[in-house]
């Protein structure tokens, strides 16, 4: 059981929780994730570790309420406990002084991009941060990202904050402005279509791009292969070989199809859960 020590509502659909997990906090590195299970009948879901505090023995998770499990998780309050929490899983990000790097976070992807951005800056990189969301309401962690980056650029799809445009638009402008040879690497984390667009763009410029994949998982320790993805023509497991991969090698088409496989079941679970909630059944 892992106790929830703090909870923040970052946007109407994005929540943050600080969870007691001393053994994970002691070891975790930027880029790694955890698997959690809320209750006896719950599924196991992976969430990236958005932050950690080794002294306090806590980790921070940030999630968008998209289905039953994340909705249910969002209903837990400070003092409640998460039944199962395993980690840190996956390979940590490769952090060294590359020179100038661009860290792009789209939507809830700002959360996983944050600790890597911070680590890259600490390693001496000039870090250009780009964050964006559909609108102002959904944008979070501007302050944290500003602190973690050398410079920060913000955009919203509808122009309700700072400027109008996708993160990929800003990415393109910055590459054009600084010159492709002056950017050592791009890190892009967010919804699959966003990562795909960013990768297509940087491929044209020949800039190495790392993405962090959020495929479906069951065990998260390399046992089931549910999360497999084709990278450079080879099958890799996101849970143990990733979650980060060379974005130019990822078969995003296959990833999108595999991610959608249980869509109907996810809808069923969500509808059933909503009906129970309305009747005051579930907490």
């Amino acid at each position: 059981m892992s106790k929830i020590l703090d909870k923040q509502v970052l946007s109407p659909v994005i929540k943050l929780m600080v969870v007691e997990a001393p053994e994970i906090a002691r070891k975790c590195l930027p880029g790694q994730f955890i698997i959690l299970r809320i209750g006896e009948e719950s599924e196991r879901i992976p969430l990236t570790i958005a932050d950690f505090n080794r002294e306090n023995g806590t980790i921070t998770i940030v999630f968008q309420e998209v289905g039953k499990t994340t909705k249910q998780l969002g209903m837990l309050e400070i003092g409640d406990s998460i039944r199962d929490l395993a980690g840190p899983l996956g390979m940590p990000s490769h952090v060294e002084n590359f020179g100038a790097v661009i860290c792009v976070g789209g939507g809830v992807g700002v959360a996983p991009v944050y600790p890597i951005t911070r680590a890259l800056k600490e390693a001496g990189n000039h870090v250009i941060g780009i964050i964006g969301s559909r609108n102002k309401e959904l944008l979070f962690w501007e302050d944290k990202m500003r602190e973690a980056s050398s410079e920060l650029h913000i955009t919203t799809d509808d122009g309700s904050y700072v400027r109008k445009g996708f993160v990929s638009d800003v990415l393109k402008e910055i590459i054009e402005d600084r010159g492709k040879d002056n950017i050592a690497m791009v890190l892009a984390i967010g919804p699959q279509p966003m990562m795909r667009v960013c990768c297509r763009l940087t491929e044209e410029y020949g800039i190495k791009t790392i993405v962090s994949l959020n495929s479906l998982m069951v065990d998260g320790t390399g046992m089931c292969g549910c999360c497999r993805v084709t990278v450079g023509g080879k099958t890799r497991f996101v849970c143990v070989d990733g979650p980060e991969f060379d974005g130019h090698q990822v078969d995003f088409n296959e990833l999108a199809l595999r991610s959608a496989f249980f869509q109907n079941e996810e809808r069923t679970a969500m509808e059933r859960f909503s009906a129970q909630c309305c009747c005051g059944g579930a907490k």
């Binding site: 009948e41 599924e43 069951v218 549910c226 084709t230 496989f261 679970a269 059933r272």
Partner: peptide, 28 residues
């Protein structure tokens, strides 16, 4: 890697460990 191709580990884990045969009472 097509959808609907499972490793036996995934298929059996979903059913045995995660009790997918009880979906939607159980979540997996």
């Amino acid at each position: 890697n097509s959808c609907g191709v499972y490793s036996a580990n995934e298929f059996l884990t979903r059913v045995n460990l995660m009790k997918a045969y009880l979906f939607p009472e159980w979540d997996t």
